[in-house]
């Protein structure tokens, strides 16, 4: 499941993967975008590292209004993804935008997060049966 408007604005799965897995070394992101991704990563895994020095770095690239916006967005998502994970349900939309049952969604997404699109999209389009059977993503 992806934001339709973000896709319309040109966001691709490759950019998402690059932004998550390789944002520090990537030349596809600005310094502002990189520190926002770092902010998010730290908020999830090492919030104790987000100290005054980190906020000073943020303030070189973002206004306080934007920092509050980013921080609230990140905090909202950290909490909701943690809560929703415990409920053990699946998206109602398939990766290609069709409403599917929970059984079908589980078959498509498997045990990995939806963001692992390579496997999920293949399963949604019927091209990934071997991946399902092998459990690979």
């Amino acid at each position: 499941m992806r934001s339709a408007s973000a896709k319309r604005d040109g966001l691709t799965e490759e950019m998402i993967d690059e932004g998550i897995e390789n944002f520090r070394e990537s030349d596809k992101f600005t310094e502002s975008e990189k520190i926002a991704l770092e902010y998010s990563e730290l908020m999830q895994f090492e919030p104790e590292k987000i100290d005054g020095a980190f906020y000073a770095r943020l303030q070189e690239l973002y206004s306080d209004e934007e920092i509050v916006e980013l921080g609230a967005f990140i905090g909202f998502n950290v909490g909701y993804h943690t809560f929703f994970r415990t409920l053990d349900f699946y998206p109602m939309f398939s990766p290609d935008g069709h409403l599917v049952s929970q059984e079908e969604s589980r078959r498509i997404y498997g045990d990995r997060p939806t963001s692992h699109l390579r496997g999920a999209m293949a399963r949604a389009t019927g091209e990934g049966e071997s991946e399902i059977e092998s459990g690979s993503e």
Partner: peptide, 8 residues
């Protein structure tokens, strides 16, 4: 959106 997927 990238951040949302990252946190997911």
């Amino acid at each position: 959106e990238i951040i949302r997927v990252q946190l997911s």
